[in-house]
């Protein structure tokens, strides 16, 4: 019986080793987009026009309500080309900041990309099967996302971080949307 157990264990260990090496061989080193790559893909150039939006008292209060904590910066930089804006937001999921790139046009999310994911759980959110849920999402009348974002089991905090970031980017884009439209309309 003991010999049989050891034989079984040996077989299982061999299977385990095979799995390990197979896994290592097929594991993909997912290359994140760099910031210039994200901007080029979003706005057609690596150095688009940019500006900053400062968090005054009113805007800081709005951002705090959305994020559940005060924004970590005094201002937020954004890049634009016509009415299309691109935002890069750092938001903590459980322990570490997740860097998200969000492209917005006419009050609607055109694309979301995870530029850097550092958390130990919730890796699912960095892939298109998750981020594509945000395509076409807008603000509702309460300045919240107008569509439900389905979660990932065991990745609740990362999902929430992505959702908060999208919400903030949409609100900020609305904040600057009118001046941009005026600029475009100007001769």
């Amino acid at each position: 019986m003991i010999q049989a157990n050891r034989k079984n264990l040996g077989l299982v260990l061999r299977i385990a080793l095979l799995t390990v090496f197979t896994t290592a061989a097929i594991a993909q080193s997912s290359a994140y987009q760099s910031k210039p790559e994200f901007l080029e893909q979003s706005l057609g150039t690596t150095q688009p026009q940019s500006d900053v939006i400062w968090f005054d008292d009113e805007l800081r209060a709005v951002a705090t309500r959305i994020l559940g904590h005060p924004p970590g910066t005094m201002r937020m930089r954004y890049w634009f080309d016509g009415s299309r804006t691109a935002w890069i937001v750092d938001e903590i999921g459980k322990e570490k900041p997740i860097t998200l790139g969000i492209v917005i046009q006419n009050g609607e999310i055109e694309r979301m990309s995870v530029l850097q994911f550092r958390e130990s759980r919730g890796w699912e959110i960095k892939y298109p099967f998750f981020t594509e849920q945000f395509d076409g999402v807008r603000l509702d009348k309460n300045d919240k996302l107008n569509e439900r974002i389905d979660g990932i089991t065991g990745a609740t905090l990362s999902v929430r971080a992505a959702t908060r970031s999208a919400n903030l980017a949409l609100v900020l884009s609305e904040h600057i949307r009118q001046p941009i439209q005026e600029t475009i309309a100007a001769p």
Partner: peptide, 12 residues
């Protein structure tokens, strides 16, 4: 532990 872009993950 590993995972891929279609949402498969595995642990040994």
């Amino acid at each position: 532990s590993g995972h891929n872009e279609i949402g498969l993950s595995w642990d040994v």
